Computed example of a mutant assay.
Amino acid sequence: MPTDGPDAHRAPAPAPDADRSLAPDADRPLAPDDLDRAFGPDTGSTATRSGHRVRTAVLIGGGTVVVAGVIVLVLGTIVGSVQTGIGGVFPRPGTALDRFVSDARDLPGVTDVQRHRAEKTAFASYEVSATVTADPSLEPAARAELVRALSRATDEASGNGVHVVAIADLGVQQVGVTEHADTAARRLQLADTLDRIGGVTAVRCSWGRGAQSSDDAEDQAVVVETPGRGRAVPPIVARVTEETQRVFPGASVQVLPAG
């Protein structure tokens, strides 16, 4: 028999057991398949590799230090090689001077060769010099030939950043010698001329003492010695200056008391 009232059309409530079977268990942990269905297959946690990263950073840092050390060592070796010389590429001032000294000692009339310390003229350039002492009794022709031979020897020994020069000590005359034989010959001729001036007892025709060698006329330095005093000196100075400027215009002239 139908029943009228407010609950007549209400659906029957589900049984307690049926409701529990349809809802997921809140206390049950989610399985991997559940995570995959909910968020995708790539959401699993990944173990961090901080230890691997630290080792990599240490290796990179150590490698950088090693490379920097190698670069410093190579640069130091290159700079040192330029300073001291390697083979036939970089300057070797000692070797160049050895060759010149050996050649000069074999020349006729030479009695001694004195080496001087090498002078650095640029980053990879040197000038080396020696004083070649000759027998003061050599005849003028023999002295001229000796100066020419010394000029050839300086030319042959120079090279690879090394410039070889010499002072020919001929007794009362000292003459600068470079690879330019014509300039060396003019110095010798001027020394002969000045030596014949009355009152002159010693002559030096070269570049300035302590200065880098030069064959330019204005860089020449002429020094003569005289025992003259007082009024005897000005005429000597005038004559020496005149003869010097005729051969080397602009050269400096000094007249010193004979020592």
Rank of each mutant, 00 (worst) to 15 (best):
H9T: 10
P12Q: 11
P14Q: 12
P14T: 09
A15H: 12
A15F: 03
A18R: 07
A18H: 05
D19I: 15
A23H: 14
A23I: 15
P29R: 10
D34T: 08
G44F: 14
A47L: 12
R49D: 05
G51A: 11
G51D: 14
R53M: 07
V54I: 12
V54F: 10
R55G: 05
V65T: 15
V66M: 10
G69R: 15
G69A: 13
G69H: 14
S81L: 01
S81Q: 10
V82E: 08
G88D: 09
P91N: 05
T95I: 02
A96F: 02
D98T: 04
A104W: 11
P108H: 12
V110R: 09
T111A: 11
D112L: 13
D112Y: 08
H116V: 02
F123P: 00
V128M: 04
V128E: 00
P136L: 08
S137E: 10
E145H: 08
L146A: 08
A149S: 15
T154A: 09
T154K: 00
A157E: 01
S158K: 01
V165E: 00
V175F: 03
G176M: 06
V177P: 02
T178A: 03
H180I: 12
D182Y: 06
T183V: 15
A185L: 06
L188I: 07
R196S: 13
G199K: 08
V200F: 04
T201F: 10
A202S: 12
G208D: 06
G210W: 03
A217F: 02
E218V: 14
Q220Y: 07
V223P: 00
V233K: 04
P234F: 09
P235M: 07
I236C: 05
R239Y: 00
E242I: 01
E243P: 01
V247Y: 07
P249N: 05
A251H: 06
A251T: 10
